[in-house]
Design a protein around this nucleic acid. Structure first.
Lengths: 264, 264
DNA sequence: CGAGAGTTTGATTGCACTCAAGATAGGTGG
DNA sequence: CCACCTATCTTGAGTGCAATCAAACTCTCG
């Protein structure tokens, strides 16, 4: 998972690196890969300038904790690159992932000072962090920002509700197919890998992380992925990369109504 | 469930009644029971006046569908009174509740024209409906409104995530205890029934609706409620009213960390 | 008092969990 | 370059919790 991460992580794995002040390409919003999908998507140049003044980049190594539940949160952030997970733990250690953060997703809640969930980098992750207090001030005076945040929050709520259906009512096999479909859809929206029906899903999640997403055990995840492979619905390229020869066949395994749009 | 509903429903069960124009007590926001918790909570008098111009009340009988997935939505609304459910259905009929609407909760999504979920009245329900288009216009010009809606959406997202943990990782017994705890907490926040530890939960949900909430079957719900009763954790007053002699004992059954605030 | 929805209880089944080895792969140091 | 080491993943056997199938019971309500 550190195939192409050399350029990204210059700091040690233990402490996030701060690139603030470096007149790097990455500090210019205009060249930002998530410019048109993140919370800042509808901001005007002058509004971006205000955001630039309170932002800084932080990188995290795969596996590194970004936040612990209960931590003081001095910032909110956009995910620029990589995948992070939001999870909750029961008294006896049972864990459930409650959020999957992909590039352009927003992390943190304005008005909340302490993190209610654990956040962990699943792959190499780069965040664009905004100091919380000034961000909240901007939010109050910048409709372009608050309207976009509302829209993103409502999208997340929809995603959470789809996820509830998966957790509450789907079989193990349907859960796996649903997860793969969801990630494939997100990757397509981000403009990646749409090669004539043959879709490659890069899922930097361990079997255990998938199990925590789906409310299963890692053994069941492994068995069901094996079964989908044996049935020709998916193929594996290593353990973390999944090739889907026919996305419609995969979607037929999710248990959903097939009324929705083909893929996106 | 129609014990005290005579004053509420003047319309037949099939078609919602519209009280618009009647200079009734209920049409005055100042006297509204959810005035300080709903989406309009932080609005100034002049802003309320603008809302009054686009609002109307609708009542629904217990069991009546409020919206079907795919329906055109001409309005968004606040729940004034009663309980409604938001649910999703799989191709073969499996159903999962993905939202529980209690008084002051908001229904609908600005910018969305068609309902993605089924919405059903679980008890007698009264909605305060705002025509969607003018509401969206107000939202764009009224920070008091949009900020409150953002806050409420983020609260709902938190609730959805707590719910995911319940669906994904809790046992049947823990699920029941969690549902009761959540409803008890909401009722306390609404200022009801805090009689010296002895809490009465009015849950106008059938066993089947609870099952749809928790990702269980109605038989399992019945059995686990029976088990909690047999263990003295709860008592029943009819089938829909639950008495909790010791809320801490109930919360101990949820599987959660007991770090959180006692009740609220 | 009968009808029907809703609820409870019982018997059995089955899917996913648990416990337990192995297999594979990525990374490290000799 | 290879052998090793640890993570991760796969596979197997047996169990258990909740689902399923089935029937009796209990409220309201007409």
């Amino acid at each position: 998972m550190s195939r192409d991460s050399a350029a990204l992580s210059r700091s040690g794995p233990a402490s996030p690196s701060l690139h603030r002040g470096a007149p790097d390409l990455r500090t210019q919003c205009a060249a930002c890969p998530i410019r048109h999908r993140a919370v800042c998507a509808s901001c005007e140049p002058d509004e971006l300038q205000q955001l630039e003044a309170i932002k800084s980049y932080r990188s995290y190594a795969a596996g590194q904790r970004i936040l612990w539940a209960g931590d003081e949160m001095g910032f909110v952030a956009s995910v620029v690159q990589g995948v992070a997970t939001i999870s909750q733990t029961l008294a006896d250690g049972r864990r459930q992932m409650v959020g999957l953060l992909l590039p352009s997703d927003f992390l943190g809640r304005p008005g909340r000072a302490t993190a209610p969930y654990d956040v962990t980098a699943a792959s190499e992750v780069m965040l664009c962090c905004f100091r919380r207090k000034p961000f909240e001030a901007l939010l109050a005076t910048t409709p372009h920002l608050s309207a976009r945040l509302l829209e993103m929050s409502l999208d997340e709520l929809d995603a959470a509700r789809e996820w509830m259906l998966i957790l509450g009512r789907k079989t193990a096999r349907e859960k796996i197919a649903s997860l793969l479909t969801i990630v494939a859809r997100r990757q397509m929206l981000a403009g990646l890998r749409a090669v004539r029906g043959r879709i490659v899903i890069d899922l930097p999640l361990t079997r255990e992380a998938m199990a925590d997403y789906l409310g299963l055990t890692l053994e069941t995840v492994s068995r069901q992925i094996g079964a989908l492979r044996a049935d020709g619905v998916i193929a594996l390229d290593g353990t973390r990369r999944i090739v889907v020869p026919d996305i419609r066949a995969l979607m037929a395994e999710t248990g959903d109504d097939m009324d929705g749009a083909p893929i996106a």
